[in-house]
């Protein structure tokens, strides 16, 4: 419509050019406002689906680990997900340490307590001074199943859903899972109390 106006008027009235341009401007401005307005109106409908304030409030837990013996593990719930707290045996750690980082499918530590680029050597799967503790989201990085403890070809975890094998440091070795299992942010409050989140 605007185009016809320009052509029609442009032929006989020179100042109609300006008129048409102003009209174009109004049209574009209206269109832009309508687009922004629509986007602003749609946003609440989309954002309502994100975690609400009550879900965000449950962001940290404290766990007493005094009863866990070497070679044992407990599982606690954090943000609706299981977290495995494992007191690793010397043999488990040795095995994990003997694996060169080059042999790993995912070379990154995936440890929220470290830099995102930290390599996935065994030390980086834990925090300094507490290397025997592996505190890890026990959630398969493929599609979210809970892997079985002390299972699979590497004696770590095995996810039965689609066959992912993790080693004793929770690092992916074979299978469709793309990443090592995640280490959540945590802190030792004292010898027996750890805060996750």
């Amino acid at each position: 419509m605007t185009r016809t106006t320009t052509a029609d008027l442009g032929a006989d009235a020179p100042d109609a050019e300006t008129e048409a341009t102003r009209r174009d401007f109004l049209l574009i401005a209206t269109g832009a406002f309508a687009a922004v307005g629509t986007a602003a109106a749609v946003w609440p409908f989309i954002h309502q689906m994100n975690p609400d304030a009550s879900a965000l409030a449950l962001s940290s837990i404290e766990v007493d680990i005094s009863s866990i013996e070497e070679g044992q593990a407990i599982t606690v719930m954090w943000q609706g997900k299981p977290v495995s707290i494992r007191y690793r045996s010397a043999a488990e750690m040795e095995e994990a340490r003997a694996t060169p980082v080059d042999d790993l499918a995912d070379p990154l530590a995936r440890n929220d307590n470290l830099d995102a680029t930290a390599p996935a050597n065994d030390e980086n799967r834990s925090v300094p001074g507490r290397e025997q503790w592996l505190i890890m989201l026990k959630v398969c990085t493929h599609l979210g199943c809970i892997p079985l403890d002390e299972a699979g070809e590497f004696g770590g975890w095995f996810c039965p859903c689609h066959g992912s094998h993790y080693d004793t440091a929770g690092r992916i070795r074979i299978g469709p899972a793309p990443e090592n299992m995640a280490i959540p942010p945590f802190e030792f409050l004292d010898e027996t109390l750890v805060r996750i989140g």
Binding site: M49, N50, D52, K81, L143
Partner: peptide, 25 residues
């Protein structure tokens, strides 16, 4: 498993899954 399929989307995958769940699981 099915909602986690969307985590395969590069860059925004994790946020999409959280959005679908309305939580962290």
């Amino acid at each position: 498993v099915i909602t986690n399929l969307f985590s395969a989307i590069p860059l925004v995958g994790e946020s999409v899954v959280t959005w679908l769940w309305g939580g962290f699981a």
